[in-house]
Design a binder for these strands. Sequence first.
DNA 1: GCCAACGTTGGC
DNA 2: GCCAACGTTGGC
Length: 152
Amino acid sequence: MSYWLLKTEPAECSIEDLAAQPTKVVVWEGVRNYQARNFLRQMHEGDEVLVYHSSCKLIGVAGTARISRTVYPDPAQFDPESPYFDPKSSLDLPRWDAVDVVFVQKFSQLLPLDEIKACPALVDLALVKKGNRLSVMPVSANEWSSILELTN
DNA sequence: GCCAACGTTGGC
DNA sequence: GCCAACGTTGGC
């Protein structure tokens, strides 16, 4: 059982969108960075996930979710209509992967980035490391606990 | 909209 | 394999 943080632009897929799915499940598609993809490959069913809102007005962790299906080829890479289409991908040789994520909870208050930055227990979180642009990153068990404590 | 930081591409 | 140019990310 591992912990992860997934970035999402709420204009694309917010925690509210996750909660609004009839099945609460979404395909986590569109990861187009090899390091992030390799983290997707390490995920197990049941792993817990922080859902982080980026590139928006209220930046921070908005809630949690869970991995409901482990890695498989991202269908968007094959779809010419998709913004995530990759002409260098083929069914034989897919480059990109997806997982399925199921909504767990929306925090009563979003945990803002500056509070995460101000928390001494979270200085090693990849999210707050200088220049970090990973959209999928591991979170330690201690960091997970610290984040949940901050939301109380 | 700015721009620092980083990843990718492609010529050599 | 180097590295300049370019594109993207994402906070501010």
